[in-house]
């Protein structure tokens, strides 16, 4: 019992330390956020991000980017053999859509595979079944995906495993928020707080 009590006290002191450090850190984080914001506005000339494309949806039908006209959209790139950032981002985008409530139909969310040789439409469909079904999963031929990624200034590369039998991928992780005119207005990072991301999405949908 005595140990438990002592431990409780120690724990309180430690939480105090966490709070103090968090306050100090908060100030630092604000500075970082501002810097990130500036970096965001310096991003590749916003007007030249993205170009019309056609790709294959996870249901096997063709998808023409013209259908995005007049509505803002969130677009991000990844692959299903990704252990961390892709499922996390898909889950976060699902949560954001839920948060939008009835406004969710004012936003399109696109997930484009940078690993089309493994991410067939069927596989993408199965994988995406764990997430909000309003997320549009897209894949295509290697060339099609390369062209779309290039127009969105997405970097990706295969990283072969040591024995060469397998590979993983490095890729741009940001979510691009595009307005109804197809212009890049902001980006989301999985490193920023959920509230920050939601606010950006709310702003995007509000126009």
């Amino acid at each position: 019992m005595a140990t438990t009590e002592t431990f409780r006290k120690v724990r309180l002191v430690l939480w105090g330390a966490v709070a103090a450090v968090a306050l100090a850190g908060g100030a630092l984080l604000l500075g970082e956020a501002q810097r990130a914001q500036q970096a965001g506005s310096n991003l590749p000339a916003a007007a030249t991000i993205g170009a019309p494309f056609t790709l294959t949806r996870s249901d096997g039908t063709r998808f023409d980017s013209q259908s995005l006209a007049g509505k803002p959209y969130a677009i991000f790139f990844g692959f299903t053999n990704c252990p961390d950032i892709c499922p996390t981002t898909l889950l976060e985008m699902s949560n954001h859509l839920k948060q939008l409530g009835a406004n969710a139909d004012k936003l399109n969310v696109l997930f484009i595979s940078v690993d089309p040789s493994r991410d067939t439409p069927e596989h993408l469909k199965l994988y995406l079944s764990a997430f909000d079904d309003r997320i549009i999963g897209l894949t295509g031929t290697t060339d099609e995906v390369a062209a779309v990624a290039k127009s969105y200034r997405i970097v990706y590369e295969k990283v072969p495993s040591k024995d060469g039998s397998d590979y993983t991928m490095n890729h741009t992780a940001s979510v691009y928020l595009m307005n109804a005119n197809g212009r890049l207005v902001s980006t989301l990072s999985f490193q920023e707080p959920e509230e920050t991301r939601q606010r950006k999405i709310d702003n995007l949908v509000a126009g």
């Binding site: 990704c82 252990p83 970097v155 993983t168 490095n170 890729h171 741009t172 992780a173 940001s174």
Partner: peptide, 12 residues
């Protein structure tokens, strides 16, 4: 895993 200039990198 690491982030380099917005690019997610993963390696052994």
């Amino acid at each position: 895993m690491s982030m380099e200039g917005g690019i997610m990198k993963m390696q052994e």
